[in-house]
């Protein structure tokens, strides 16, 4: 039985995440039933769409509680794109919303800067310090694929393990204990993305 689950709460292109895991030799299961979450050793929380709608779905389905319990066991969880944002304390996307509050961070919109387009969409450089096993096998910079209008502003800058520049520098990856977040789409970021996913599975 596979031990990697991808949370299916009706937000985003989850097929791509499954395909990417399959490419690196890992079978995964889509999990929509909250009671099944505890069976897994790795959880991926994907997501594309609006923050408020996503957090409401996690709450209403009982998935929030199941994920809270899972995270408390210390087993690894990776949030991708909106999934990363949901792990934060609050988001100001269309009003103020409470997140899962596992990472002390605010989700805020990119400021209006001349010549900087929002959404931030396309390939941009991931800057990180090597040494962390999460970046094993990678050079210190490479491009990954982003699509987002809001970014994560970590209260504790030590949590951000990779940054990207789009008018301003922002946290393109965070990590705190068993919690991992990637603002870009590793499943759509070719070899770099597959390597990062593979490193997460080894964490």
């Amino acid at each position: 039985m596979s031990s990697v689950s991808i949370i299916d709460y009706g937000m985003g292109n989850i097929r791509s995440v499954m395909n990417a895991l399959s490419e690196i030799g890992t079978t995964s299961e889509l999990v929509a039933d909250p009671s099944a979450v505890s069976r897994f050793d790795r959880v991926i929380l994907p997501g594309v769409g609006a923050f408020a709608q996503a957090i409401a779905r996690l709450r209403e389905s009982g998935m929030k509680e199941a994920l809270d319990q899972y995270v408390a066991t210390g087993k690894p969880l990776l949030g991708i794109c909106l999934g990363m944002q949901l792990m934060c304390s609050t988001s100001s996307e269309d009003g103020e919303h409470q997140g899962l509050d596992w990472i002390k961070a605010k989700v805020v919109r990119f400021p209006d800067i001349e010549g900087i387009k929002v959404p931030h969409m396309g390939w941009n450089a991931l800057q990180f310090a090597s040494g962390d096993p999460l970046f094993a096998g990678l050079e210190e910079s490479g491009d990954v694929y982003f699509v987002h209008s809001y970014y994560v502003d970590c209260a504790d800058k030590k949590d951000q393990v990779a940054t990207t520049e789009h008018g301003i520098p922002f946290a393109s990856m965070f990590r705190r204990d068993n919690l991992y977040g990637m603002q870009f789409h590793p499943e759509k970021s070719q070899q770099i993305g597959l390597t990062l996913l593979s490193n997460f599975l080894k964490s």
């Binding site: 097929r15 395909n19 694929y145 970021s189």
Partner: peptide
């Protein structure tokens, strides 16, 4: 999509919401 690890855009004969959803669900 099973072999494509970059963004994938698709088109042709998208005339209703259900088919659009099918394509997104197809990857």
């Amino acid at each position: 999509s099973r072999h494509c690890f970059v963004p994938l855009a698709v088109g042709g004969w998208i005339t209703d919401e259900a088919y659009a959803t099918t394509l997104l669900r197809s990857g």
